Simulated assay, not measured.
Amino acid sequence: MLKVENLKALYRGVILALDGVSLELARGEAVAVLGPNGAGKSTLVRALAGLLPSYEGRVSDGRIELGGRDVTAAGALAVHRQGLTAVLEGRPIFRYLTVRENLRAAGHRLPAGELAARMDEVFHWFPRLAERSHEQGGYLSGGEQQMLVLGMALITDPKVLVVDEPSLGLAPLLVEELFEVLARMHREKGMALLLVEQNARAAMKLAHRVYVLEHGRVVFEGEREAAERDADVMEFYLGAGAGGFLGAKRYRRRKRWI
């Protein structure tokens, strides 16, 4: 469904944010992209969604294929029409519109009957949104806003769903609830899911395969089980087996695996 080859991306013509990233996402697969702040994760999402120009960025080299078609230079609308929907970091909703109005805005191109059916589906996945359907988006909690932005993405019925940092700023119980719903949606709807996260523990429970980004490059690629066996991944992201000198060990591992 999605193939990225040797992707390089610049901001303002000089700041290199992605330095030869390659990855693949098969039909119906769930893939996690992990990495610390500044690794290039959000830049990757913007590039996939055709949004880099909106952030004074551009793809300088490489190729993005979606469903076998080259969308490297395609705009956001063209990418969306090919079946990719991206949920950006920061919970971008219309804060002065109600929950229902936000969902209608996301599906404004749909016939009325189809839009109503998809809204019912969103309320099935997120019952809390149904309870607050007439509340303005800005009055929702952070977790409810994240549910709403995911619901807006589901209204578009994506073939490929890219989600950037869905756990950011949420309490652990809400993160667990949100990822359970994402896992169920992925299984039951059969869509390809690219999950871009810092919360490695939550992401790896859901993903079939894992990529790790650092400094705009892929430093690890493999099946989830391989990631769980890899001492570098486990120690740096999950703190497993680190002992009393966690900071020093992390530093040595990062220097070694880059």
Rank of each mutant, 00 (worst) to 15 (best):
M185Q: 01
E5Y: 09
P127S: 03
V87I: 07
R132D: 09
V163N: 08
L7P: 01
E24L: 07
A76S: 15
V160G: 10
A240N: 12
R69S: 15
H208F: 03
G28P: 06
G190K: 07
A17C: 12
H134D: 12
V219F: 12
E180C: 02
G50F: 02
M1P: 06
L7I: 00
W257D: 08
L168S: 07
T156A: 15
N102F: 08
S22P: 06
R184Q: 05
L2R: 03
V233T: 14
H134G: 00
A200H: 11
P111G: 15
Y251Q: 04
V163W: 14
G142E: 15
E188Y: 07
E214L: 14
L10D: 11
L110S: 04
D120K: 14
L195M: 06
R128F: 13
G68Q: 05
R254I: 15
E197F: 03
L238Q: 03
V181D: 08
G90A: 03
P158M: 10
R184K: 09
L161Q: 09
E176I: 01
D61Y: 00
P53L: 08
R201N: 14
A248T: 11
M1D: 00
N37C: 13
G239M: 02
A130D: 09
S167H: 02
M152D: 13
V33G: 00
S60K: 06
F94N: 08
R252M: 07
V31S: 08
Y237K: 05
L206Q: 11
L238G: 05
M152V: 12
E188F: 13
I258H: 15
D19C: 00
E214Y: 14
I64Q: 01
P158G: 10
Y211W: 06
L129N: 11
A171E: 07
A130V: 05
K255N: 12
I93P: 03
V212H: 11
V149C: 11
D19T: 00
V181M: 02
A74F: 03
Y237I: 12
Y237T: 12
A227G: 01
R132T: 04
R58L: 14
R12A: 07
T156S: 15
N6G: 12
G13D: 03
R58F: 15
R201Q: 15
A106T: 05
R69E: 14
P158T: 03
V87A: 07
G151T: 09
E176T: 12
R252F: 08
A200P: 09
E223G: 14
A171G: 05
L154M: 15
A73P: 01
G169M: 10
L110R: 04
S133K: 11
L51S: 10
V79D: 09
V71N: 05
I93L: 12
S60P: 05
A226F: 08
E56Y: 05
Y11R: 13
A200D: 04
G50I: 13
H186S: 04
A47D: 07
V87M: 09
L238A: 03
W257K: 02
V160E: 14
R27H: 13
V218E: 00
S54H: 10
L51E: 11
G107Q: 05
L18R: 13
R187F: 04
H186E: 04
